[in-house]
Protein backbone atom coordinates (compact mmCIF):
# COMPACT_ATOMS: atom_id res chain seq x y z
CA UNK A 1 0.00 0.00 0.00
CA UNK A 2 2.81 2.35 0.87
CA UNK A 3 4.39 1.36 -2.41
CA UNK A 4 2.19 3.87 -4.21
CA UNK A 5 4.08 6.75 -2.64
CA UNK A 6 7.24 8.23 -4.05
CA UNK A 7 9.42 10.09 -1.57
CA UNK A 8 12.21 12.58 -2.05
CA UNK A 9 14.75 12.99 0.71
CA UNK A 10 16.13 16.53 0.74
CA UNK A 11 19.52 16.62 2.40
CA UNK A 12 22.31 14.08 2.53
CA UNK A 13 23.60 14.47 6.07
CA UNK A 14 23.25 12.19 9.05
CA UNK A 15 19.46 12.27 9.28
CA UNK A 16 18.98 12.26 5.49
CA UNK A 17 20.88 9.00 5.33
CA UNK A 18 18.96 7.59 8.30
CA UNK A 19 15.62 8.42 6.68
CA UNK A 20 16.69 7.17 3.27
CA UNK A 21 17.66 3.85 4.81
CA UNK A 22 14.25 3.66 6.51
CA UNK A 23 12.25 4.54 3.36
CA UNK A 24 14.26 2.01 1.37
CA UNK A 25 13.69 -0.67 4.00
CA UNK A 26 9.95 0.10 3.80
CA UNK A 27 10.05 -0.52 0.06
CA UNK A 28 9.22 3.08 -0.77
CA UNK A 29 11.16 4.37 -3.78
CA UNK A 30 13.17 7.45 -3.02
CA UNK A 31 14.84 10.32 -4.78
CA UNK A 32 17.77 12.10 -3.14
CA UNK A 33 18.10 15.85 -3.41
CA UNK A 34 21.21 17.85 -2.65
CA UNK A 35 22.51 20.99 -4.36
CA UNK A 36 25.89 19.26 -4.27
CA UNK A 37 25.70 16.77 -7.16
CA UNK A 38 28.43 14.53 -5.83
CA UNK A 39 26.79 14.26 -2.42
CA UNK A 40 23.38 13.52 -3.95
CA UNK A 41 24.82 10.92 -6.30
CA UNK A 42 26.99 9.35 -3.61
CA UNK A 43 24.18 8.76 -1.14
CA UNK A 44 21.64 7.79 -3.83
CA UNK A 45 23.97 5.15 -5.23
CA UNK A 46 24.23 3.40 -1.87
CA UNK A 47 20.45 2.94 -1.66
CA UNK A 48 19.59 2.49 -5.34
CA UNK A 49 17.87 5.89 -5.36
CA UNK A 50 17.88 8.56 -8.01
CA UNK A 51 19.83 11.80 -7.35
CA UNK A 52 18.48 15.25 -8.22
CA UNK A 53 20.04 18.66 -7.69
CA UNK A 54 17.13 21.06 -8.18
CA UNK A 55 13.90 21.45 -6.22
CA UNK A 56 11.95 21.46 -9.50
CA UNK A 57 13.32 18.04 -10.39
CA UNK A 58 12.62 16.84 -6.86
CA UNK A 59 9.00 18.04 -6.83
CA UNK A 60 8.41 16.58 -10.30
CA UNK A 61 9.58 13.16 -9.19
CA UNK A 62 7.78 12.62 -5.87
CA UNK A 63 4.55 12.79 -3.86
CA UNK A 64 6.24 13.47 -0.54
CA UNK A 65 9.24 15.64 0.25
CA UNK A 66 11.16 14.57 3.36
CA UNK A 67 13.10 17.60 4.59
CA UNK A 68 16.38 16.51 6.18
CA UNK A 69 18.48 19.56 5.42
CA UNK A 70 20.22 21.75 7.97
CA UNK A 71 17.59 23.18 10.30
CA UNK A 72 17.60 26.76 9.00
CA UNK A 73 16.80 25.51 5.50
CA UNK A 74 13.73 23.44 6.50
CA UNK A 75 11.14 26.15 6.00
CA UNK A 76 12.21 27.25 2.53
CA UNK A 77 12.04 23.74 1.11
CA UNK A 78 8.93 22.74 3.06
CA UNK A 79 6.96 25.81 1.96
CA UNK A 80 8.07 25.38 -1.66
CA UNK A 81 7.12 21.69 -1.57
CA UNK A 82 3.69 22.47 -0.12
CA UNK A 83 3.07 25.14 -2.75
CA UNK A 84 4.01 22.55 -5.38
CA UNK A 85 1.31 20.33 -3.92
CA UNK A 86 3.68 17.87 -2.29
CA UNK A 87 3.13 16.41 1.16
CA UNK A 88 5.89 17.30 3.58
CA UNK A 89 7.72 15.19 6.12
CA UNK A 90 10.19 17.26 8.11
CA UNK A 91 12.90 16.25 10.54
CA UNK A 92 12.89 17.88 13.97
CA UNK A 93 13.35 20.63 14.87
CA UNK A 94 10.53 21.68 12.57
CA UNK A 95 12.23 25.00 11.80
CA UNK A 96 14.80 27.40 13.17
CA UNK A 97 12.24 30.10 14.06
CA UNK A 98 8.62 30.23 15.07
CA UNK A 99 7.83 32.44 12.07
CA UNK A 100 9.31 29.79 9.77
CA UNK A 101 7.29 27.06 11.45
CA UNK A 102 4.09 29.07 11.20
CA UNK A 103 4.77 29.71 7.51
CA UNK A 104 5.15 25.96 7.01
CA UNK A 105 1.85 25.22 8.76
CA UNK A 106 0.07 27.90 6.73
CA UNK A 107 1.56 26.75 3.42
CA UNK A 108 0.57 23.13 4.06
CA UNK A 109 -2.91 24.18 5.10
CA UNK A 110 -3.39 26.46 2.10
CA UNK A 111 -2.20 23.76 -0.31
CA UNK A 112 -4.20 20.99 1.39
CA UNK A 113 -1.13 18.82 1.91
CA UNK A 114 0.06 17.01 5.01
CA UNK A 115 2.91 18.32 7.18
CA UNK A 116 4.39 15.64 9.47
CA UNK A 117 7.30 16.38 11.80
CA UNK A 118 9.76 13.69 12.83
CA UNK A 119 9.60 13.65 16.60
CA UNK A 120 10.89 10.11 16.49
CA UNK A 121 10.97 9.61 20.26
CA UNK A 122 7.20 9.14 20.02
CA UNK A 123 8.06 5.95 18.11
CA UNK A 124 10.67 4.62 20.55
CA UNK A 125 9.06 1.63 22.29
CA UNK A 126 10.29 2.45 25.81
CA UNK A 127 8.89 5.98 25.59
CA UNK A 128 5.62 4.75 24.11
CA UNK A 129 5.29 2.05 26.79
CA UNK A 130 5.89 4.54 29.58
CA UNK A 131 3.29 6.96 28.22
CA UNK A 132 0.83 4.10 27.75
CA UNK A 133 1.38 3.16 31.41
CA UNK A 134 0.70 6.76 32.46
CA UNK A 135 -2.46 6.86 30.32
CA UNK A 136 -3.57 3.56 31.87
CA UNK A 137 -3.34 5.17 35.31
CA UNK A 138 -0.40 3.11 36.56
CA UNK A 139 1.19 6.01 38.44
CA UNK A 140 -1.71 8.44 38.77
CA UNK A 141 -1.26 12.03 37.67
CA UNK A 142 2.24 12.93 36.41
CA UNK A 143 3.99 15.11 39.01
CA UNK A 144 7.77 15.21 38.46
CA UNK A 145 9.44 14.12 35.21
CA UNK A 146 13.17 13.78 34.72
CA UNK A 147 14.35 13.20 31.16
CA UNK A 148 17.99 12.77 30.18
CA UNK A 149 19.74 12.41 26.81
CA UNK A 150 23.54 12.24 26.85
CA UNK A 151 26.01 11.83 24.05
CA UNK A 152 29.22 13.29 22.70
CA UNK A 153 29.79 16.49 20.79
CA UNK A 154 28.97 15.72 17.14
CA UNK A 155 32.22 14.88 15.37
CA UNK A 156 31.89 17.50 12.67
CA UNK A 157 34.55 19.93 11.49
CA UNK A 158 34.74 23.46 12.88
CA UNK A 159 32.47 25.71 10.85
CA UNK A 160 29.88 22.94 10.35
CA UNK A 161 26.31 24.31 10.42
CA UNK A 162 25.64 22.23 13.50
CA UNK A 163 27.89 24.49 15.57
CA UNK A 164 26.37 27.69 14.18
CA UNK A 165 23.62 28.66 16.59
CA UNK A 166 21.91 30.82 13.97
CA UNK A 167 21.52 27.76 11.75
CA UNK A 168 20.97 24.86 14.16
CA UNK A 169 19.75 26.41 17.41
CA UNK A 170 22.39 24.44 19.27
CA UNK A 171 21.88 21.60 21.70
CA UNK A 172 18.45 22.78 22.86
CA UNK A 173 16.84 22.78 19.41
CA UNK A 174 18.69 19.74 18.20
CA UNK A 175 18.87 17.32 21.12
CA UNK A 176 16.83 18.58 24.06
CA UNK A 177 13.79 19.10 21.84
CA UNK A 178 13.21 15.31 21.83
CA UNK A 179 12.53 15.30 25.55
CA UNK A 180 10.77 18.67 25.60
CA UNK A 181 8.33 17.11 23.15
CA UNK A 182 8.02 13.99 25.27
CA UNK A 183 7.45 16.04 28.43
CA UNK A 184 4.55 17.77 26.65
CA UNK A 185 3.23 14.44 25.38
CA UNK A 186 3.12 13.00 28.89
CA UNK A 187 2.47 15.98 31.20
CA UNK A 188 0.73 18.42 28.88
CA UNK A 189 1.33 21.98 27.83
CA UNK A 190 4.24 23.95 29.26
CA UNK A 191 3.66 27.16 31.20
CA UNK A 192 7.22 28.28 32.02
CA UNK A 193 10.75 27.31 30.99
CA UNK A 194 14.04 28.03 32.68
CA UNK A 195 17.25 26.70 31.13
CA UNK A 196 20.99 26.93 31.51
CA UNK A 197 23.50 25.68 28.97
CA UNK A 198 27.23 25.10 29.35
CA UNK A 199 27.69 25.82 25.66
CA UNK A 200 26.11 29.24 26.06
CA UNK A 201 27.72 30.17 29.36
CA UNK A 202 31.12 28.63 28.59
CA UNK A 203 31.42 28.60 24.79
CA UNK A 204 35.17 27.98 25.01
CA UNK A 205 34.66 24.74 26.97
CA UNK A 206 34.21 22.56 23.87
CA UNK A 207 31.36 20.62 25.47
CA UNK A 208 27.72 21.34 26.07
CA UNK A 209 25.26 20.30 28.74
CA UNK A 210 21.90 22.01 29.03
CA UNK A 211 19.40 21.62 31.87
CA UNK A 212 15.86 22.95 31.70
CA UNK A 213 13.19 23.15 34.37
CA UNK A 214 9.61 23.24 33.05
CA UNK A 215 6.34 23.91 34.78
CA UNK A 216 3.31 22.44 33.05
CA UNK A 217 -0.20 23.86 33.02
CA UNK A 218 -1.28 20.64 34.80
CA UNK A 219 0.93 21.54 37.78
CA UNK A 220 3.54 18.92 36.90
CA UNK A 221 7.22 19.94 36.78
CA UNK A 222 9.95 18.53 34.54
CA UNK A 223 13.73 18.46 34.55
CA UNK A 224 15.11 17.96 31.05
CA UNK A 225 18.81 17.60 30.33
CA UNK A 226 20.70 17.19 27.09
CA UNK A 227 24.42 16.62 26.91
CA UNK A 228 27.25 16.71 24.42
CA UNK A 229 29.80 16.31 27.20
CA UNK A 230 30.32 12.55 27.27
CA UNK A 231 33.03 10.52 25.59
CA UNK A 232 32.25 8.71 22.31
CA UNK A 233 30.51 6.41 21.65
CA UNK A 234 28.13 7.25 24.52
CA UNK A 235 24.46 7.47 23.73
CA UNK A 236 22.52 7.27 26.96
CA UNK A 237 18.88 8.04 27.61
CA UNK A 238 17.03 7.83 30.89
CA UNK A 239 13.73 8.97 32.24
CA UNK A 240 11.74 8.93 35.43
CA UNK A 241 8.05 9.77 35.57
CA UNK A 242 6.82 10.19 39.14
CA UNK A 243 3.08 10.41 39.64
CA UNK A 244 0.55 10.82 42.39
CA UNK A 245 0.72 7.15 43.29
CA UNK A 246 3.62 5.59 41.46
CA UNK A 247 6.86 5.88 39.56
CA UNK A 248 8.20 4.76 36.18
CA UNK A 249 11.96 4.45 35.67
CA UNK A 250 13.95 3.76 32.51
CA UNK A 251 17.69 3.80 31.91
CA UNK A 252 19.12 2.71 28.59
CA UNK A 253 22.32 1.62 30.34
CA UNK A 254 20.33 -0.94 32.30
CA UNK A 255 18.10 -2.22 29.51
CA UNK A 256 20.57 -2.91 26.72
CA UNK A 257 19.91 -6.56 25.88
CA UNK A 258 23.27 -7.00 24.20
CA UNK A 259 26.53 -5.71 25.66
CA UNK A 260 29.37 -6.17 23.21
CA UNK A 261 32.95 -6.07 24.41
CA UNK A 262 34.78 -6.62 21.20
CA UNK A 263 38.54 -6.61 20.91
CA UNK A 264 38.07 -4.80 17.62
CA UNK A 265 36.47 -1.89 19.49
CA UNK A 266 32.92 -0.65 19.96
CA UNK A 267 33.29 2.93 18.73
CA UNK A 268 32.10 2.88 15.13
CA UNK A 269 33.42 6.41 14.68
CA UNK A 270 30.17 7.93 13.43
CA UNK A 271 29.63 11.66 13.56
CA UNK A 272 26.59 11.28 15.82
CA UNK A 273 25.24 8.46 17.90
CA UNK A 274 21.77 6.93 17.81
CA UNK A 275 20.02 4.72 20.31
CA UNK A 276 20.44 1.01 19.66
CA UNK A 277 17.13 -0.03 18.19
CA UNK A 278 18.20 -3.20 16.50
CA UNK A 279 15.85 -5.50 18.40
CA UNK A 280 12.64 -3.56 18.77
CA UNK A 281 12.10 -2.39 15.24
CA UNK A 282 13.72 0.77 13.96
CA UNK A 283 11.76 3.77 15.31
CA UNK A 284 12.66 5.72 12.17
CA UNK A 285 11.00 3.02 10.06
CA UNK A 286 8.00 2.92 12.38
CA UNK A 287 7.72 6.69 12.18
CA UNK A 288 8.09 7.01 8.42
CA UNK A 289 5.81 4.03 7.75
CA UNK A 290 3.19 5.65 9.98
CA UNK A 291 3.62 8.93 8.11
CA UNK A 292 3.25 7.13 4.77
CA UNK A 293 0.08 5.36 5.95
CA UNK A 294 -1.31 8.61 7.25
CA UNK A 295 -0.66 10.39 3.96
CA UNK A 296 -2.31 7.57 2.00
CA UNK A 297 -5.38 6.89 4.10
CA UNK A 298 -5.57 9.64 6.73
CA UNK A 299 -4.67 7.42 9.69
CA UNK A 300 -4.03 9.82 12.59
CA UNK A 301 -0.38 10.20 13.59
CA UNK A 302 1.11 10.67 17.04
CA UNK A 303 2.12 14.22 16.30
CA UNK A 304 0.50 16.99 14.32
CA UNK A 305 2.18 20.00 12.74
CA UNK A 306 0.50 22.18 15.38
CA UNK A 307 1.86 19.89 18.06
CA UNK A 308 5.37 20.13 16.66
CA UNK A 309 5.01 23.89 16.48
CA UNK A 310 4.16 24.00 20.19
CA UNK A 311 7.20 21.87 21.00
CA UNK A 312 9.35 24.24 18.95
CA UNK A 313 7.87 27.12 20.92
CA UNK A 314 9.01 25.46 24.16
CA UNK A 315 12.47 24.73 22.76
CA UNK A 316 12.92 28.30 21.55
CA UNK A 317 11.84 29.52 24.99
CA UNK A 318 14.42 27.23 26.62
CA UNK A 319 17.09 28.51 24.25
CA UNK A 320 16.06 32.09 24.98
CA UNK A 321 16.28 31.40 28.71
CA UNK A 322 19.74 29.86 28.31
CA UNK A 323 20.90 32.93 26.44
CA UNK A 324 19.54 35.18 29.17
CA UNK A 325 21.33 33.48 32.03
CA UNK A 326 18.46 31.29 33.14
CA UNK A 327 15.68 33.86 33.10
CA UNK A 328 12.19 32.31 33.43
CA UNK A 329 10.35 32.47 30.11
CA UNK A 330 6.56 32.26 30.14
CA UNK A 331 4.94 30.51 27.20
CA UNK A 332 2.19 32.29 25.34
CA UNK A 333 0.29 29.56 23.58
CA UNK A 334 -2.01 30.13 20.66
CA UNK A 335 -5.60 29.02 21.30
CA UNK A 336 -5.56 26.88 18.18
CA UNK A 337 -3.07 24.52 19.80
Amino acid sequence: MTGRLRVGVAGTGFIGETHLAAWTAEGIPAVVYDVDEARAAGLAARFGARPVTTLEALFDAVDVVDVCTPTHLHAGIAVAAARAGRHVVCEKPMARTLADAEAMVEAASAAGVRLLVGHVVRFFPEYVAARDAVLAGAIGDPAVLRLTRSSFRPRQPAGHWFFDHAKSGGIVLDLMIHDLDYARWVAGEVATVQCRSAGVERPEAGIDHAMAILTHESGAISHVSASWAYAPPTFHTAFEIAGSHGLIEHDSALTAPITPSLLSGTDAGGTTALADTSLNGDPFRLELAAFARSILDGTPTRTSARDALETLRVALAADESAHQGGRVVRLERTEAA
Binding site: P142, A143, V144, T192, G219, A220, I221, A242
Partner: peptide
Amino acid sequence: YAVANRIL
Protein backbone atom coordinates in the same frame (compact mmCIF):
# COMPACT_ATOMS: atom_id res chain seq x y z
CA TYR B 1 15.63 29.13 41.06
CA ALA B 2 13.14 26.55 42.29
CA VAL B 3 9.74 25.09 41.44
CA ALA B 4 7.62 22.77 43.56
CA ASN B 5 4.26 21.03 43.62
CA ARG B 6 2.02 18.84 45.76
CA ILE B 7 0.94 16.00 43.47
CA LEU B 8 3.12 13.11 44.65
